[in-house]
Nucleic acid binder design. Structure first.
Length: 573
RNA sequence: GCCUGCAUAGUUAAAUGGAUAUAAUAACCCCCUCCUAAGGGGUAGUUACAGGUUCGAUUCCUGUUGCGGGUGCCA
């Protein structure tokens, strides 16, 4: 559709110039004025002419009438002037030949672009705290972050996904103390993160009775900071155990990171930035702490050093940003975190600006709404948390049960059940705009009918199944008529044609849900087509071949879109 | 207190300032001798309140109400 809009915009720009004594309205601005009518009876693309009224000094209806003459011809079938709307109908011939060819020749690259070529995007997302469980609260940053990464890659950007692990801090002193008192190597090797969490919880229980434990923990963390070999070894091992387990979850989601440089990685990079702040006279000492006053920007001050001289989160973030700029020379550096951290990012972004780094405006915070479960806030204390692996397991076993009932002899049953179960949860999460708070209702997340992951994966499987059958019967060798004979065929092609601009919108707004909802549009249109038009049993071979092409095109678009939101392509369900 | 986000069918959501506000779900009713019924079709049901800007406001601005988040030594 982008191409058509471009062609029309240029024609209209010319028509305005011709009819209004050389008045200039840029084609580019006209292109953005097109919209998709709410109903198909109003055409495929529409141009509201009200906005021209003032500058062109005519009524919208008169303007539409004049412009109408200027845009006739391919790929337009007909144009109607309805109350100042110029309603444009695209020709079936264009859809069935030019557009369909474009999709099929694009294949698994259809929708991609090269506008990001030569540019680098750094993405900071997921970032769990080592030795803590991976729960629903981490799902948002993980899938939104990865989706935004995939979207940029699809546009040709070089992307660096960084898992900024929470691998430093006094909690490691606690872990070391707890492990030495109550843990042993074998148990932790077997029990993994769960066992580490158990030790951590036990520490807090015991510390309430015995205050000396806290002191011991501080001492062990101090030793860790001083590179004590035993503590370093233990600390590295906790990280190793944790990351190993996180990677299982990432594998289920199809996610890989380019870097696991966690907080500890930046400890030695902070002093230089603190020194720079000091030299630039940006630091104020207040009540013993060092901070940057942001009152001029209507924000509370940004704390850089605690009273005891130790660093804080913003200190580390600033150092990390400088390091990443020097290392990757990013064009954008994106942080995906809960909207609860919005102020924090606004503050340290401002500090980076005040420090004179001219790339401060390339730092982008992508916030998302907070998560609750069945209407209640997430709270580790009250036990209102669901581990991601448990949630996935619930979904997977439910899928497996349904498959046993409906398709018991399928190959790769376990793999498919995992893809569909995990996909259901991911799709549910990415369906709404990210900024909205999400109440995770298990009943809905594990529902497989309607606007759900299983529905769209099932639809994808349908395309594969038809194409496979065609290969078996030899129908894939027929010659296509390249002619539309049913409304459903045209409707399907029109929705497929919107994929490239949906990708652009999703990247512009850093909003994966644009893709999620688009997938639903495609699935619905394909299912209507599938239901109302016989593909393999169509009346003649040319139509069979044409409909097979449509099926293949729908499969490409669904598959490409799945990749963008961490959904796996399921060839059979 | 101040800053900030959100408010749309019973429920969960959608709608680059545009036409009769769109889906799903729950309710009721149809469709498997037909490429996978995790599907398709039908009925019924919505913009918190008050102003403003505009040819036109769910969308932008102001205020009110309700809910969430943040607000100097956690991350």
């Amino acid at each position: 559709m982008i191409e058509i809009k471009q062609i029309l915009a240029e024609k209209i720009s010319k028509a305005i110039s011709d009819n209004w004594n050389g008045t200039v309205v840029e084609a580019e601005s006209i292109r953005d004025m097109f919209e998709y009518p709410p109903e198909s009876s109003f055409g495929d693309i529409s141009l509201p002419c009200f906005r021209f009224s003032k500058t062109l000094r005519r009524s919208p209806i008169q303007i539409a009438e004049i412009l109408k003459a200027g845009i006739a011809g391919e790929p337009i079938e007909r144009i109607e002037n309805v109350n100042g709307y110029l309603n444009i109908y695209i020709s079936n011939d264009y859809l069935a030949t030019t557009l369909l060819t474009e999709i099929l020749s694009g294949g698994n690259k259809y929708g991609s672009q090269t506008i990001g070529k030569g540019k680098t995007v750094v993405l900071d997302y997921s970032s769990p705290n080592v030795a803590k469980p991976f729960h629903i609260g981490h799902l948002g940053t993980t899938v939104i972050g990865h989706s935004i990464k995939k979207l940029h890659e699809f546009l040709g950007y070089k992307c660096v996904g960084i898992n900024y692990l929470g691998d430093w801090g006094t909690q490691f002193g606690k872990m070391i103390v707890a492990y030495r008192l109550w843990g042993n190597r074998e148990e932790v090797e077997v029990g993994g993160v769960d066992k580490l969490v158990e030790l951590y919880v036990k520490f807090h229980h015991e510390a309430e009775l015995d205050k000396s434990l806290e002191d011991a923990a501080r001492k062990e963390f101090h030793k860790l900071e001083q590179n004590d070999p035993d503590n370093i070894e233990l600390w590295k091992w906790f990280i190793e155990i944790s990351v190993k387990e996180y990677k299982k979850t990432y594998r289920q989601l199809g996610i890989e990171f380019d870097s696991y440089a966690g907080e500890s990685f930046y400890t030695d990079k902070m002093p230089a930035q603190v020194e720079k702040l000091r030299q630039m006279n940006l630091l104020k000492i207040d009540d013993g702490a060092s901070l940057v006053d942001l009152a001029d920007y209507n924000m509370p001050p940004c704390l850089i050093l605690k009273r005891d001289g130790s660093t804080l989160y913003p200190t580390r973030d600033i150092a990390a940003a400088v390091y990443r700029k020097n290392t990757y020379d990013f064009d954008k550096c994106i942080y995906v975190t809960s909207s609860a951290q919005s102020l924090h990012f606004a503050q340290w972004f401002k500090v980076v600006e005040l420090m004179g780094y001219d790339w401060y405006d390339k730092l982008i915070h992508v916030p998302y709404g907070t998560v609750s479960i069945n209407g209640e806030k997430l709270a580790t204390r009250t036990g209102n948390v669901i581990l991601l692996k448990d949630l996935f397991d619930m979904a997977i076993s439910k899928v497996a049960d349904i498959m046993t009932e409906k398709n018991p002899n399928i190959a790769n049953k376990e793999e498919t059940a995992e893809a569909v179960g995990v996909g259901a949860v991911v799709f549910y999460y990415l369906l709404g705009n990210r900024i909205k708070d999400i109440d995770f209702r298990l009943e809905d997340a594990l529902s497989f009918e309607g606007n759900t992951g299983p529905y769209v994966q099932y639809t994808y499987a349908r395309t594969c199944s038809v194409l496979e059958k065609a290969r078996k019967t030899g129908a894939d060798k027929y010659t296509s008529s390249d002619r539309i004979t049913a409304q459903e065929e045209a409707n399907l092609l029109k929705v497929l044609a919107k994929f490239p601009e949906k990708v652009l919108t999703a990247v512009r707004d850093l909003e994966p849900s644009v893709i999620t909802r688009y997938i639903l549009d495609v699935a619905a249109e394909f299912n209507r087509f599938y239901h109302n038009c016989q593909i393999l049993n169509a009346t003649d071979e040319q139509t069979v071949a044409f409909r097979l092409k449509l099926t293949e095109a729908a499969g490409y678009v669904l598959g490409n879109a799945f990749e963008l939101i961490c959904l796996k392509k399921t060839e059979k369900i």
